[in-house]
Design a binder for these strands. Sequence first.
DNA 1: TCCCTTGGAGACTGGCACTATCCAAGCATG
DNA 2: CATGCTTGGATAGTGCCAGTCTCCAAGGGA
Lengths: 216, 216
Amino acid sequence: MRLAELSEHSGVSTATIKYYLREGLLQPGRRTSATQAEYDERHLRRLRLVRALIQIGKLPVAAAREVIAATEDESLDHHMRLGAATWALPQGPAAMEEDAAHQAASEAVAALLDRLGWDAEVALAEFAPAYRTLLASVAALNRLGYPCDVEHLLPYGRLAAELAVSDLDMVQKQPTPEGQIEAAVALTVLYEPVLLSLRRLAHAEESARRFAAKRA
Amino acid sequence: MRLAELSEHSGVSTATIKYYLREGLLQPGRRTSATQAEYDERHLRRLRLVRALIQIGKLPVAAAREVIAATEDESLDHHMRLGAATWALPQGPAAMEEDAAHQAASEAVAALLDRLGWDAEVALAEFAPAYRTLLASVAALNRLGYPCDVEHLLPYGRLAAELAVSDLDMVQKQPTPEGQIEAAVALTVLYEPVLLSLRRLAHAEESARRFAAKRA
DNA sequence: TCCCTTGGAGACTGGCACTATCCAAGCATG
DNA sequence: CATGCTTGGATAGTGCCAGTCTCCAAGGGA
């Protein structure tokens, strides 16, 4: 398959494919001559994954590159490579100054991890981006005056735990380790918009149920 | 409060506040003279909300403006104004061409709404952005070869429904209609990063539980 | 009075994700 | 073999977005 054909099969313009090649999101094809390169099904598959991460998952190109790189890093163990997608969170603008809202957020999150029986070490050491985003979000809620303590967070945490079980089950259904890693990345990132959309639809439904007087 | 003081209290630079004023995210202050304007607590509160929507919720400025405008549109009924935040989804790049993946996604989502007992009219008519995002995401998963049918979607949908109940409860705790609307916007948008972060932390925890051999 | 600050308007910046242009080296057709 | 079209690669440019800079005339305070 030449670049033009890769473009046709994937629906991505050749210009963009060249851009991804330059950015290291896609491995170069096998050169057959000074001006010709050959791509195969694996390139196509990866291109589709990259596109999905960027377009659907809204990952910045740089983050997508890091994720892809991590999934291929043979020096990491399986567990770490499965976590690759977690590193790609476009982490917010560093920690705010240590104000009261942030303080309260820290305590609430610590209490939450405790109540859920999660290992704070894991959260802090390996997955700082998600942890920091969580803190920043809770702090912002506090600053607006919306209580966001353990009691409020707990239902969210429990549901997240359930989702994780279901997600990891899907990952483990993949027969090969490589397949598992790709699945972990794809499912982590691509189910996010699914989850958010469903939540918004659920809001609509529930709100209609409670407030809309005009419906039959 | 003058503009400079508003900036101090909120931690937002005067330049950015001026920008938000220009963009209509913030109402102009009460002019006290040709070169002086007076801002009050309501401006401060709104500025904080706007900042949170943009920085934490990652809403584009234009979307934030629309959300804010909808919350103030007296011609809409309470239910519609509560749904304001839902409109602001930075909806993906239109619907893809009608390929097989998209077709399958449509069917899966329709079946899902049915199984959940949700009203497809509500989802389609009022909340098209979320619906479209959902379709596009499921289609992308399909295209990558990850089955994303009713059975996989159902746990996500059920959890979304639970969250909606909990969220709407929080909204209804607000005493005033205006407060309810602001709460609906704030909680819809600002709990999204909370939810996603928790899911990623849960993945880490669950993955550590299943795969990490090296922990005590 | 004199100077410093203020709010406002428009131009400018930097980052990002592409996209367009150019180029030399094939390949393929007569 | 000549010739014209295509290909992959490198470089420069585009459009958009969120914010920032610069300048200005009009106040306000010492």
